[in-house]
Design a protein around this nucleic acid. Structure first.
Length: 783
DNA sequence: TCCCTTCAAC
């Protein structure tokens, strides 16, 4: 090729498709270098374009900088697209601004890249300026430009904007924070005075390793100024990877920007539309929750003789996941199979998710098993599918398999798997994950931090949960509710309430779940007036319609306070149909307050809708035995046996050195049973010396008094605690989990034990945590 | 040159 003529080179460059490899591109470059005019704008700008087609950003930039100004539009466009393809959206946008300032007339095909970059920068004002620019230059009829425009507006409307509307944070791991000021002023009129426009950029640390700034922008880099309207974005790390797609917009509960009208407007004025146009509108509607509109567009698309492709299907499937409509979801699945799209990795993930949300997790497994290729998202989908359906062990199994398959977990993976640890109260697993998170630098991610807060709170370590919460830079709704709920469950109602108030002071408006947390706090501490004020405030001032959880917290509170009739009226007056579970709350209160009559009435309500509700039978049995109505007890027991209903056996467990030890009541099977028994007897002796008197009323069997004492002595939580005491060093906190409510006598006994052994003992029962310390419990004996 | 999938608090 050494003797290639200039004419041949020109022809080659005019038809760059014939250049198939990077190597050929470099050879071409070398040949041009040997010609008489290696620096001609034609050669250079064409070469820039060739390099940018191969995504060779540095080579393209190097050539671009050899051009005498003003470089031709083709060269600008190539660089801008290359920046966008490398995920360098700030640079892409700034290059566009600089191009406009240099007076070059852009051609239409620069706009899709610029719009994509401004979309991913989450800067609506800039995007709108670009739109104005497009109209001004007469490119508003261009198909690709319009598709990109619609996409931009659709993305903006589906993001939850921050409360103060000034900061649109994109989370990108390992990146710098770049502040872009006044970018929009940088778009001058065509042939306008570019010099008068400014592009101000600042960064939170020196950009020493990012050579992108060496290409014409040093003069624009200024120190950050808090007085300037800042639009904060993160610059991806220097490897140029496209991290932003995997990031997430900082969420708040402020109002959404409804931009679907803009999307619609663009769509309607388009002279021609292709499949991408339709898909863009469909996904826009789907993301903004306008599901019916999205589905209507799919039908209209058919009328326009366009067939749904893999983009359409994977955008539509999440709609049926949200609607929990497995019939429609299956229709899509069928369509995908008929058109050979069922092995598409995008559709596969949507299908896994759709089946999981419809509680058909076995179908999720099947889809996952049939996928020929699995990416991080398919793995996350199957992990989330398991966890969301309560299959925690399975979820962990998939998580381990994913690591073995050398798929690096991302923040989504952690927030999918962490609830499994929280639900299983598997502190050692949670800690392992936390270690992994710290080692890989994910601990500043708000989603991950929130799941950690929730996990530690649910696993009994509220102090660590609080510590992580306090270290978070930005608190979103979920982290607030996690920490409030955490304190509520641990009985620290006043802390929970003050956190709730702090949240409101910081401008985060409480949502429905936050009120559940606040009401739960009140319910666990018996704060009736406070609960009513929250409940009324929520419905009147916040326009939140109470749901079952709110009603349950209030009913529970009324019941515990002995206001049984009031609770009955409250439940009967709910705007939704009372469930068995909320009636059970009251039934439980009837047991505490020994109201047999109301208990029978309430049980009747439960059995009407749920005749096999074992819990209700047990509660009613307890009510009868507390009232010493042994005949009724017997009658119910026989009835239950005939129905094949069994009482859940009490069970407690404790983690010692990452191993879980479980105990049933009166359980003698543990290898260390002799030592446990010995410890229990020593404890009992010291407890009685301190004034402990067994409360045999808690034993609901019709047996002798001595027998009752014996039964209490071997309740499962006491076995677990005794084992904890003999297996751990002095002073170490003991954490025990029980599947049922702690009985009154054990509660008293554990208070004594905490004082005698001088340890903090934390017991989680089926609804809350008890922190026993120095003979007192955090629940204030109200649970 | 443009469009798609996964996650946290109840």
């Amino acid at each position: 090729m050494t003797s290639t003529s200039t004419k041949t080179l020109v022809n080659l460059l005019k038809n760059p498709i014939s250049i198939k490899t990077k190597h050929q591109a470099k050879q071409l470059h070398a040949q041009i270098f040997k010609t008489e005019t290696p620096n001609s704008p034609f050669f250079v700008s064409r070469l820039v374009s060739v390099y940018s087609n191969f995504n060779l950003l540095n080579d393209s930039l190097h050539l671009f900088n050899t051009l005498d100004s003003p470089p031709p539009a083709l060269a600008w466009k190539s660089i801008i697209r290359c920046y966008t393809d490398n995920g360098l959206f700030v640079q892409s946008v700034l290059f566009f601004v600089k191009m406009m300032a240099s007076g070059v007339h852009p051609d239409h095909n620069v706009f899709p890249s610029v719009l994509k970059s401004s979309t991913l920068l989450v800067d609506l004002r800039f995007g709108e300026s670009v739109h104005a620019c497009i109209v001004r230059l007469g490119f508003h009829l261009d198909l690709y430009t319009n598709n990109a425009l619609m996409n931009m507006y659709a993305k903006f409307q589906s993001l939850d904007m921050n409360t103060n509307d000034e900061f649109y944070g994109l989370e990108v791991s390992g990146g710098h924070k770049i502040y872009v000021h006044e970018v929009l002023d940088g778009i001058p009129e065509r042939n306008g005075d570019g010099q008068s426009k400014s592009v101000l950029v600042s960064c939170n640390e020196p950009l020493d390793h990012t050579n992108y700034w060496k290409h014409g922008f040093e003069e624009s880099v200024v120190g950050s100024d808090d007085n300037v309207n800042l639009h904060c974005v993160e610059l991806p790390c220097s490897d140029g990877a496209r991290h932003v797609d995997e990031g997430s917009c900082a969420k708040t509960n402020s109002g959404r920007r409804l931009q679907m009208d803009s999307v619609r407007k663009v769509f309607e004025q388009m002279p021609t539309r292709d499949l991408v146009s339709w898909n863009t509108v469909i996904v826009g509607f789907a993301r903004s929750g306008l599901f019916e509109e999205a589905l209507e567009m799919v039908r209209e698309m058919g009328n326009a003789n366009l067939k749904p492709d893999s983009f359409t299907l994977s955008s539509v499937l999440p709609i049926f996941a949200d609607y929990v409509d497995v019939i429609k979801g299956k229709e899509i699945h069928g369509y995908a199979i008929r058109h050979g799209l069922d092995t598409d990795v995008f559709i596969g993930s949507s299908l896994i998710d759709m089946y999981a949300k419809c509680t058909r997790v076995e179908d999720s497994h099947r889809v996952f098993g049939l996928l020929p290729r699995r990416d991080g998202i398919s793995w996350n989908s199957i992990i989330a599918a398991c966890v969301q359906n309560g299959m925690f062990d399975e979820g962990l199994k998939f998580f381990r398999q994913m690591l073995l398959a050398k798929i690096k977990p991302r923040h989504v993976s952690f927030s999918s798997i962490m609830p499994a640890c929280a639900h299983m109260t598997a502190l050692h697993l949670g800690k392992q994950l936390h270690g992994y998170i710290i080692r890989n630098g994910y601990d500043d991610n708000v989603f991950i931090a929130s799941s950690l807060v929730d996990m530690y709170a649910k696993c009994g370590n509220i102090r660590l949960a609080r510590c992580i919460f306090d270290k978070m830079e930005l608190h979103d709704m979920v982290s607030w509710t996690s920490i409030i709920m955490g304190h509520a469950l641990h009985g620290y109602a006043l802390d929970a309430i003050s956190l709730f108030e702090q949240m409101e002071e910081e401008g985060v408006k409480a949502n429905s779940v936050a009120f559940v947390a606040a009401l739960t706090a009140c319910s666990h501490a018996g704060l009736i007036d406070k609960a009513w004020s929250y409940f009324n405030c929520m419905t009147r001032n916040y326009g939140i319609v109470p749901c079952l959880e709110h009603y349950t917290a209030v009913a529970d509170l009324l019941g515990r306070a002995g206001k049984l009739e009031e609770a009955y009226e409250f439940i009967s007056g709910m705007h939704i149909r009372p469930t068995g579970s909320i009636w059970s709350t009251l039934l439980s209160a009837c047991r505490v307050h020994k109201n047999v009559e109301l208990a029978e009435k309430v049980a009747e309500k439960i059995f009407m809708t749920d005749p096999d509700n074992t819990g209700a039978y047990i509660l009613l049995t307890n009510v009868y035995s507390a009232a010493r109505r042994w005949k009724d007890v017997l009658r119910l027991r026989i009835h239950m046996r005939n129905k094949g209903l069994k009482k859940t056996p009490a069970c407690s467990w404790i983690e010692i050195k990452n191993k879980v030890h479980a105990f049933a009541a009166g359980d003698e099977s543990h290898p260390c049973y002799d030592k446990i028994n010995e410890a229990l007897n020593v404890l009992l002796e010291r407890m009685e010396r301190e004034g402990y008197v067994p409360d045999t009323k808690e034993v609901l069997h019709d047996v002798e008094e001595e027998q009752k004492k014996y039964l209490l002595h071997y309740h499962s939580e006491r076995l677990a605690i005794a084992f904890g005491i003999i297996s751990t060093p002095d002073g170490m906190t003991i954490r025990v989990i029980k599947n049922l409510r702690v009985c009154g006598d054990c509660h008293t006994a554990i208070k004594f034990i905490s004082k005698i052994v001088q340890r903090e003992i934390i017991v989680r029962d089926n609804s809350r945590f008890h922190h026993f310390k120095d003979g007192k419990c955090s629940c204030g004996d109200y649970w």
